[in-house]
Lab assay of single mutants.
Amino acid sequence: KRYRAVYDYSAADEDEVSFQDGDTIVNVQQIDDGWMYGTVERTGDTGMLPANYVEAI
């Protein structure tokens, strides 16, 4: 699945990823209600991200 960031996010922990509004997130997997795991296409960084900061595309 592919998602697009709708807000900027700065990683708060080493297992999270930072991204900017408009970034595409690929290979996304749902972890639980609030978190997903995926790769930021622009940077190649992979990690956890907050589900409410992205939307499906």
Rank of each mutant, 00 (worst) to 15 (best):
K1N: 12
K1R: 11
K1M: 12
R2S: 12
R2A: 12
R2I: 13
R2V: 14
R2H: 10
R2N: 09
Y3E: 02
Y3S: 00
Y3T: 01
R4W: 08
R4S: 07
R4G: 05
R4Y: 09
R4L: 09
A5K: 03
A5T: 04
A5P: 02
A5I: 02
A5E: 02
V6C: 13
V6S: 07
V6G: 05
Y7L: 13
Y7E: 10
Y7K: 15
Y7V: 10
Y7T: 12
Y7S: 14
Y7Q: 15
Y7H: 14
Y7A: 15
D8L: 06
D8H: 09
D8Q: 09
D8I: 07
D8K: 09
Y9T: 01
Y9H: 05
Y9F: 06
Y9L: 03
S10K: 14
S10I: 14
S10E: 13
S10M: 13
A11H: 04
A11M: 04
A11T: 05
A11G: 08
A11F: 03
A11C: 06
A11P: 06
A12R: 15
A12D: 07
A12P: 05
A12T: 12
D13N: 15
D13G: 15
D13K: 15
D13T: 15
D13W: 11
D13H: 15
D13R: 15
D13A: 14
E14P: 12
E14S: 12
E14Y: 10
E14T: 11
E14G: 10
E14D: 13
D15F: 14
D15R: 14
D15S: 15
D15V: 09
D15T: 15
E16M: 08
E16V: 05
E16G: 09
E16Q: 14
E16C: 09
E16D: 05
V17A: 05
V17Y: 03
V17P: 02
V17I: 10
V17L: 06
S18H: 03
S18Y: 02
S18L: 01
S18G: 06
S18K: 02
F19G: 00
F19R: 00
F19Y: 00
Q20Y: 12
Q20R: 14
Q20S: 09
Q20H: 11
Q20T: 09
D21R: 15
D21W: 15
D21K: 15
D21Q: 15
D21Y: 15
D21L: 15
G22H: 04
G22Y: 04
G22M: 04
G22A: 04
G22C: 05
G22R: 04
D23F: 02
D23L: 03
D23S: 02
D23T: 01
D23W: 07
D23E: 04
T24V: 15
T24Y: 15
T24G: 05
T24I: 15
T24D: 07
T24M: 13
I25C: 04
I25P: 00
I25S: 05
I25Y: 00
V26K: 08
V26Y: 09
V26E: 05
N27S: 09
N27C: 13
N27Y: 08
N27G: 08
N27W: 08
N27E: 08
N27K: 08
N27I: 13
N27H: 09
V28R: 02
V28S: 05
V28P: 04
Q29R: 12
Q29E: 11
Q29Y: 14
Q30K: 11
Q30E: 12
Q30I: 15
Q30L: 13
Q30N: 10
Q30F: 14
Q30C: 13
I31D: 04
I31W: 09
D32Y: 12
D32W: 11
D32C: 13
D32G: 11
D32M: 13
D32S: 15
D32P: 06
D33W: 09
D33H: 11
D33S: 11
D33T: 10
G34V: 14
W35L: 05
W35C: 05
W35F: 06
W35R: 08
W35V: 06
M36L: 14
M36P: 00
M36K: 04
M36D: 01
M36N: 04
M36F: 13
Y37Q: 06
Y37A: 04
G38R: 00
G38N: 01
G38L: 03
G38P: 01
T39P: 01
T39W: 04
T39S: 05
T39M: 08
T39K: 07
T39Y: 05
T39G: 02
V40A: 02
V40D: 00
V40T: 00
V40Y: 00
E41L: 13
E41N: 04
E41Y: 07
E41H: 07
R42E: 05
R42S: 06
T43N: 05
T43Q: 02
T43R: 00
T43L: 01
T43S: 07
T43M: 03
T43E: 01
G44A: 05
G44V: 02
G44P: 00
G44Y: 04
G44F: 04
G44C: 07
D45I: 11
D45E: 14
D45H: 12
D45N: 09
D45Y: 08
T46H: 09
T46F: 07
T46I: 07
G47F: 03
G47L: 02
G47E: 01
G47M: 02
M48L: 14
M48H: 07
M48F: 14
L49M: 09
L49E: 01
L49S: 00
P50H: 08
P50G: 03
P50N: 07
A51F: 08
A51C: 09
A51W: 06
A51G: 08
A51R: 10
N52F: 11
N52D: 11
N52E: 11
N52R: 14
Y53Q: 05
Y53H: 09
Y53W: 07
Y53S: 12
Y53V: 07
V54G: 02
V54R: 01
V54S: 01
V54H: 02
V54L: 11
E55P: 02
E55Q: 12
E55V: 15
E55I: 15
E55R: 11
E55M: 12
A56V: 13
A56Y: 12
A56H: 10
I57E: 09
I57H: 07
I57R: 04
I57K: 05
I57S: 06
I57A: 07
